[in-house]
């Protein structure tokens, strides 16, 4: 794990930051982009943090007016993830390699139970299955927030426990199928917006798996 001297962050701050990344990725894949999201992505710190992809993204987002961009992105989100017609169903049970390829598969039940044990459940109004990419990402955000809370309040044991939950969930679930998401998404010819986020998703989760294992 990166220690404070490497990244300049304390353990609590790092966990909070990781929670933020998961939260952002969850937002991107949960629903169509909205104005708030676009504003956030165009803020200077975000563009700087993202580096080259950030510039690409910024260029894409400012090519047309905001309304036009939002309409295009909404149409793309629908085309990519909702249908009608062939689309990418962003669910672990559908995309995990070796899985049955169906909604409400065994993985869905396992993920639901796991979240339940941690005290979380999908809110009714969200209308998403427990193994939807956005839900799994938000679960990781929640666990990272728990970890951050632990470090910041001096509860090292609680923090480590939350970290263990993260590792288990990454290895057992999220980490096993993000590669599939990226592959299938590439094939669907996404705009730079979703292409960049697919890359970021994959790269971040891979880093997370490596980092968590060496903690």
């Amino acid at each position: 794990m990166c220690n404070a001297s490497e990244t300049g962050l304390s353990r609590g701050e790092e966990a909070r930051a990781r929670s933020g990344v998961y939260g952002l990725l969850a937002r991107v894949f949960r629903a169509e982009a909205d104005a708030a999201l676009l504003r956030h992505l165009q803020s200077p710190e975000i563009v700087a943090a993202l580096g080259r992809p950030g510039e690409e993204l910024a260029a894409f987002l400012t090519r047309q007016g905001t309304d036009r961009t939002l309409a295009d992105l909404a149409e793309e989100y629908t085309r990519l993830f909702l249908g009608p017609g062939p689309h990418l169903s962003l669910h672990e049970a559908v995309l995990v390699p070796g899985g049955a390829g169906l909604l409400w598969g065994r993985e869905t039940a396992v993920v639901k139970t796991c979240m339940g044990e941690a005290g979380c459940a999908v809110a009714d109004q969200a209308e998403l299955l427990p193994d939807h990419l956005a839900v799994e990402l938000e679960f990781m955000a929640h666990l990272c927030a728990e970890e951050a809370q632990g470090w910041l309040s001096g509860d090292a044991v609680g923090a480590r426990n939350a970290a263990a939950w993260q590792t288990a969930f990454l290895n057992g679930h999220l980490g096993t199928w993000v590669g599939s998401v990226r592959e299938r998404l590439e094939a669907a010819r996404p705009s730079p917006f979703y292409a960049v986020f697919a890359e970021l998703l994959c790269a971040f989760v891979r880093q997370e798996v490596e980092t968590c294992l060496s903690r």
């Binding site: 990166c2 990244t7 962050l9 701050e13 790092e14 909070r16 930051a17 990781r18 929670s19 933020g20 990344v21 998961y22 939260g23 952002l24 969850a26 937002r27 949960r30 708030a36 999201l37 956030h40 803020s43 710190e45 975000i46 700087a48 943090a49 993202l50 999908v122 809110a123 969200a126 998403l128 956005a134 839900v135 990402l137 938000e138 955000a141 929640h142 927030a145 790269a203 971040f204 880093q207």
Partner: peptide, 17 residues
């Protein structure tokens, strides 16, 4: 990534689901 996250966590995107 951590910078991205730090900047994003303030906006609290998660918690919607």
């Amino acid at each position: 990534f951590l910078k991205l996250g730090a900047a994003s966590s303030a906006v609290a995107f998660s918690g919607a689901i």
